[in-house]
Design a protein around this nucleic acid. Sequence first.
DNA 1: AATTTAATGTTATATGAATAACAGTAATAG
DNA 2: CTATTACTGTTATTCATATAACATTAAATT
Lengths: 214, 214
Amino acid sequence: MKLLPEKTVERLSQYRRVLQRELASGTEHIYSHELAKLLHITPVQVRRDIMLIGHSGTLRRGYNIADLIDLIGIIIDCSGQQKVAIIGIGDLGRALLNYLQGSRTKLQLSAVFDNNPDKIGTLYGGILCHNVEHLKKIIKRENVTIAILSVPPAYAVEIANKLTEAGILGILNYTPVSLDVKGAFLEQYDVITSLEKVAYFAKPVNAAIMHQEE
Amino acid sequence: MKLLPEKTVERLSQYRRVLQRELASGTEHIYSHELAKLLHITPVQVRRDIMLIGHSGTLRRGYNIADLIDLIGIIIDCSGQQKVAIIGIGDLGRALLNYLQGSRTKLQLSAVFDNNPDKIGTLYGGILCHNVEHLKKIIKRENVTIAILSVPPAYAVEIANKLTEAGILGILNYTPVSLDVKGAFLEQYDVITSLEKVAYFAKPVNAAIMHQEE
DNA sequence: AATTTAATGTTATATGAATAACAGTAATAG
DNA sequence: CTATTACTGTTATTCATATAACATTAAATT
């Protein structure tokens, strides 16, 4: 099977979340326009995404919710075959941990690392915090494939290198340091950049232009 | 002037950050290929972005760093004319507050809101936490134009509505709830979606396809 | 039973972004 | 003082994504 477009994968994650809510409320089927409305996108986009993953709905009844959830699970996370580690358990790390454990994602948080002696040996959400010195060893031993990087900027490059040496497959980088890893999929997210982007488009003069174009 | 592409605005924010570092280390000029290397992008993209904002470098000397920083500041944040509020000061809210105050962005954090009585009246990073009941009044009075939403999902829609009623111009939504605001620029970021995207592309079978295509 | 309807599934087009190609030019070297 | 070099600046092309147009079909209606 060919790789799915990045944007489609992102939407699949969001489809699953709202579908889980719908299923829990007792609904069995859903139309493309209903799913679209929940995410404020178009029905065509929903149908196209669902086509791309090879699923079919039934005419006049829409898509079977349970089936769709299962299929998205197979595509994204293979029902718990991937393990996740958080490196750096400050405010952001803890926030991410809460999000993870509060969501119904099948990705399993398996390890937490820090370099602060007060934190090492402590439980965070039931997970023991290891010394970051042992990063490579533990990542390998536990077969962790995905790392979330939420350390101070100064450590980012050094830790990213250790992660690739340990054979990591995916890195979600929350430090404002641009990384260049090879052999792993890298996703960067920068809070300040995101905020400054909002600032630009929210500036009255720009907001006016955006509005007049609609 | 026409609106800049979203991706260009994001990169401008990143250019500025690394340029500030370079300036602090005493460098006066920088070549497009040097700036590109710092962010792991191509020199052409750097030059194109700089062209789009109407700046010119000098042949054989590159771009004047101080000038570029100033220009990006004028484009993005108008030197402190925009104020920011954080709504919901849990782990994520505090992490965002630290990022904001630790960065050199010119956007000024001016208000913090929560509904927890223990938090209301407390100082966070020197900013007083208000009761979210007074959201609309204070946003208007203080002329806050940008809101960061980091509340539990159940409150997201209600607060987004209040924000638009208060005349907010930009919202950065960290809740996993899809919003549909009119009259303001909206940027959504979903941690779980981001992580699941990494999981998809990091899956061994997909990583193999990505690798063979290179 | 024929027709309409309301949905899905697929192909074609348009838009946005990144890359590539190339044009221009000031300093340097011979 | 001509040619080369090492950059910047701009236009053209390609690639990814979203949108639009259209084809299909099972159920409902008449």
